[in-house]
Design a protein around this nucleic acid. Structure first.
Lengths: 127, 127
DNA sequence: ACGAATTGTGTTATGTTATTACATATGCTA
DNA sequence: TAGCATATGTAATAACATAACACAATTCGT
């Protein structure tokens, strides 16, 4: 399951690893211009691959991307809290929530391929 | 709590009521051109108001809008399943999920102002 | 009924996010 | 080493969203 990343993929992954907060594709493009990246598709293509490998996550409510925080992979399920003041994101893996949503889906004849859970609000430091 | 909608707000609400599937702002603009709407701000302003009144919901993973399905208002919490084949959306209100997420937030010193839950997948008819 | 304040409208322009299309390059594998 | 799949670079464009400004309609207090 080990995969060797290409140069652009590694550049984008590193940029997201350095970032304290979610980055948009255009943030990343600006950040990586000096590394030779010039156009949006270079960023989006790298992001697509990293998303597929689940090394990064997309935050739908921000149109932005974050590095995957930990080894939730087995659980295939992440939720995020997003502080609207400082921008910091926490990733967590609420198994019971997954179960409940799965239960709803089963009852309602829906097959979920992916689930987005994002809490917007304030962390304690920003209250 | 009864509010009289303005002409543009009513036009947008009606268009979303007629729609079987989520509509983007530009879909709505096209739909409502013959009613005299010409520019994006007219749509977005109406949508902002309707969102504030919770008569419509925004689907973050689609950048699109749906009519609010029922009286979840008291519960202040909605989740959505989105069929990627037919586009149909179901809205539901998983109270226990709300409780679990609230519990996580409390433990982690996070104050959630709003929560997005969206399941992407296939409904039974599209399997 | 009046004027002030608030809310909504119409419009142009622009900002932001994402994709299409196509030509070239790189690396794997038979 | 030829062929194929994957990745790259680039320009152009599509799709989603907001800023700014002038004016109109509505609401509210007196």
């Amino acid at each position: 399951m080990k995969v060797k990343l290409t140069k652009n993929q590694q550049l984008v992954l590193d940029a997201l690893t350095r970032a304290e907060t979610p980055q948009t594709a255009y943030n990343l493009l600006d950040e990586l211009r000096e590394e030779g990246l010039r156009a949006p598709p270079q960023i989006y293509r790298a992001l697509d691959k990293l998303l597929e490998l689940e090394l990064v996550h997309r935050l739908e409510s921000l149109n932005a991307f974050v590095i995957c925080a930990h080894d939730h992979h087995d659980q295939g399920f992440s939720a995020f809290s997003i502080c609207e003041a400082c921008g910091k994101v926490s990733e967590f893996s609420p198994q019971e929530v997954a179960g409940l949503l799965q239960g709803w889906a089963a009852k309602n004849n829906f097959v979920a391929k992916s689930t987005t859970i994002e809490l917007r609000g304030h962390c304690i430091r920003c209250d």
